[in-house]
Amino acid sequence: MLDLRLYMAQRISALIMAPLTLGHIAVMIWAVQGGLSAGEILGRTQGSVFWFLFYGTFVAAVSVHAAIGLRVIVYEHVGISGKTLTALTWAVFAVLIAMGARAVWAVTAGAGGA
């Protein structure tokens, strides 16, 4: 059910997520110290290639990590296996990456300077 390939995908995605999560929290805390508004923050992130890659990478890692994690839980506790399990894994991945990509696009695309 969880072979080496999926195991490595989950561990590597975790390794990617960890520093990005810490970076996200650190920047959030730092950014609000000076009383930045949501609009001002968006002004800095929109049009920024750096923040697009930062959150884009995070969303991709989350989608891989959560899809595999849910796959394990569903298999062990619900008993779904085989092609249905594979389809479910891909479906979870697709929903997460679509929702995440939409959010990343909203925050980093459009007007504003890098």
Binding site: M1, L2, D3, L4, L6
Partner: peptide
């Protein structure tokens, strides 16, 4: 030990 029922479970 790296198959679908292997140590990674």
């Amino acid at each position: 030990v790296s198959g679908t029922g292997g140590c990674h479970n």
